[in-house]
Design a protein around this nucleic acid. Sequence first.
RNA 1: GCGCGAUUAGCUCAGCGGUAGAGCGCCUGCCUUACAAGCAGGAUGUCGCUGGUUCGAAACCGGCAUCGCGCACCA
Length: 948
Amino acid sequence: MPEANLPKTYDPAGTEARWQQAWEASGAFHPDPGALGEPFSVVIPPPNVTGSLHMGHAFNTALIDTIVRFQRLRGRNVLCLPGTDHASIAVQTILEKQLNAGGQRKEDLGREAFLERAWEWKAGSGGTIVGQLRRLGYSVDWQRERFTLDAGCSAAVIEAFNRLHEQGLIYRGEYLVNWCPASGSAVSDLEVEMKEVDGHLWHFRYPLSAPATAAAAIGRTHLEVATTRPETLLGDTAVAVNPSDPRYAALVGQTLTLPLVGRQIPIVADEHVEAEFGTGCVKVTPAHDPNDFAIGQRHQLPLITVIAKDGTMNAAAGRFAGLDRFAARQAVVAAMEAEGCLVKVEPYRHSVPFSDRGKVPVEPLLSTQWFVQAEPLAARCREALANPSGAEPLFVPERWSKVYRDWLTDIRDWCISRQLWWGHRIPAWFVVSETGGAISDSTPYVVARDQAEAQAKAEAQFGTGTHAHPVVLEQDPDVLDTWFSSGLWPFSTLGWPGERAQGAPGGPEPADLARWYPTSVLVTGFDIIFFWVARMTMMASALMQDGEIPVGGRDTWMPFRDVYIHGLVRDENNRKMSKSAGNGIDPLLLIERYGADALRFALVREVAGAGQDIRLDYDRKSDTSATVEGARNFANKLWNATRFALMNLGGETPASLGEPEPAALQLADRWILSRLARVNQGTAERYTGYGLGEAAKGLYEFAWNEVCDWYLELIKRRLQDPAQQRTARQVLAKVLSELLVMLHPLMPHLSEELWHGLSGEAESTFLALQSWPALNEAALNDQLEASFAELIEAIRVVRNLRAVAGLKPSQSAPVRFLTVRSELAALLREATADITALTRAERVEVLSPEQAEAASSAKGNQRALAGVSGELQVLLPIEGLVDLDALRGRLEKDLAKAEKEIKGLAGRLANPNFAGKAPPAVVAECRANLAEAEAQAALARKRLADLG
RNA sequence: GCGCGAUUAGCUCAGCGGUAGAGCGCCUGCCUUACAAGCAGGAUGUCGCUGGUUCGAAACCGGCAUCGCGCACCA
């Protein structure tokens, strides 16, 4: 930053790029685990490699970076570790689309070639978001950047799978899973979204197999059932009624003949059925509905799958085989109608499970998958919350801990296998030599860390004695849920398992893991508490403790001490921003227009700390945002304040100027130094306690409304005076340079730039690596701050009177203050020169009431403009210039205000309970205020009377 | 159905027991050699409704309304 001829406006573009490059090239954010300083670590929520930067990332980044930059200034050994997530389904979808466009399917390429392409794609477009994150000025250690599918994370996944399997926490089995026909894979419960859909409720008649008996018992020959999914009828294996429903009690145990199919199906009694709903009879399709599956389990009903994995009807659907499930729905209804079994059709709004990714209804399907047994892991996490040991995760805001705990209660097992190619291939090998080459649900398998270990294990188990043939293995073709690897993120990225792999617990830990695990804080949006936060704590509960003792003897196995949950960024219409809704606001556009610092500051300033969503105002026609513009203006204000300093420090720096001599400090100096100390204290507290928005607001107000509006104005005169300028320069340099340090976490580029300009430090030295300014407690002075506020108010009153009088800013006028309080009079006298400068006073007089009394009879004084502030009366004794109507208006306004106040205060004091029960200090204050208001009213009346 | 949050100036939001605040927008006047992305001055509110607690409620408690979110879900 050149010292002379600075442009009048700050141009972020060049500045930001320059510092980003300098920081990264210097390794400023690449910490040494052996370095001094208490460790502070954060792993960033890894964005999806397919993604591009959206406002949510920008928000999350702004918060994390503010925190870690602050901790760095505080002298902690900070690691902030970035990375991306491989996003199985998303990447595979992109690639398959590309293939399809060329008329190919992935099967034509084969797995290996397909994966090669995937890695090529990742090398090319996969880095987009990482480049974009850099543009925010993210102070992460790019040298430690990780990817959930890199060698280290893959080793962690294999190790984790093996250990969980050894602990009996991973199992393989055939269950009803959420099947996404669009992606051709199972998905977990969390990846299913219930959506309200307008559908129909079809009422069908199922004839009883023994109509005569039934007719005798209940007077009819059939039962009526209702369904929203007629196609599943083909897989029905029962009809259920409530056991205490008197209408059907006699029929339980009898059978029905399933229309279209002819199968004999029993009538069972099950508590799940609500007698009040519909006819009280439910068709049961255990292979295609989770509730029915449960009923089926309770009654040992057969499972008949009629829908295939591609969403079409299978052979078991008979004449409907081959039809798409939705076409089959119409066909079944038509067939039922033809058979006279359709009773009626009603429009019906109900919830349908949709696949998050595929955007099609999921099909509950019976299939063999791998699962993580969730309850034992969840139990440990719940316990950690319920028995606070100081090591449990602290949620900010606290209410989210309940959301987290509730989800961990009554948790269901987690389906982790995906029928995809891009991802971590499941480290399980089928012993196909046992089955003649085929893989079926019953094929034996071994879980191992690699092929060789699998071979050894399998040979030990199957290759001996009776088995004549050699053991042949085939690895499970499926991959793991991406969230499985994300769940290991806080330790896999730090080097776990390192040498502890290969089942050798007790080996040395990677230095990073030893130094930085557990991480200090996790910062993320509430929308992924279940997906990610809970999965990380569950994984850690199983993997990061050896028996009772956490790995490495740490105080906790929890992957983070604090969990700072923030809201979502919503659009100007309060809608969640999403790609599909097309209402996203491109952060890059805002960065280009206003600068990354402005965007960051705007986002952080909007967040109050309650974890509330933030609504970002935005004008889509012009791509502008008033909120971000305001932050940009603030950046410009700081730029100009520094510019002013550079023009007035005489080429000196904060270091060369040194600390000011206490005895030489003037009123304004002592005031701003007190304010500086207070802001230092408050800001550090807020940064530490996740009050980031408040920190930002506090600094904004201090910088703009105190330093710029008052202090800079007050010292302009002294800076021109060689006899007085040194102290003013010293204080100015100190205030500004410390302000820049405090602002650095929020506006890193601008503060870095201005700090260099001010300090003259070499480009290789960084503000980012300086120390938080020492708190000067001796400078704190409540009394002084209160007095100064009175002075400011006095000046405001004068300015207001001048405006009322219609004085031009260039015109000067005399100012006269009247007060009974001697301290106030003294203050005003001390500040006479300041008042003169800031009010264009011709002369400033400070009179005692006695003097004022004498003066009031003097000529012209009756016609003075009068204003009141507290115990201070302000007069502008100007003749000839006064607009009498304006003057009267001003006085009437003062009077009305005072009278309103008197009414309120007198009313309160008149209440005997108030004086009796309120704290004495409050009562005293009330009395004082009343006296003041009465004095004000009296003055205003007198002046009005003088006017005639 | 269960739970959570929000409701304060035209807009976006602070305030969370002691007489209503900020930014933007609006009105008036200023290119005052740091800044017009600025400066000075000004106007603007039955603090969603309703009971209660209290000397005192925007704030605390109960109910209601509206909006939003999460979880569960009956075919």
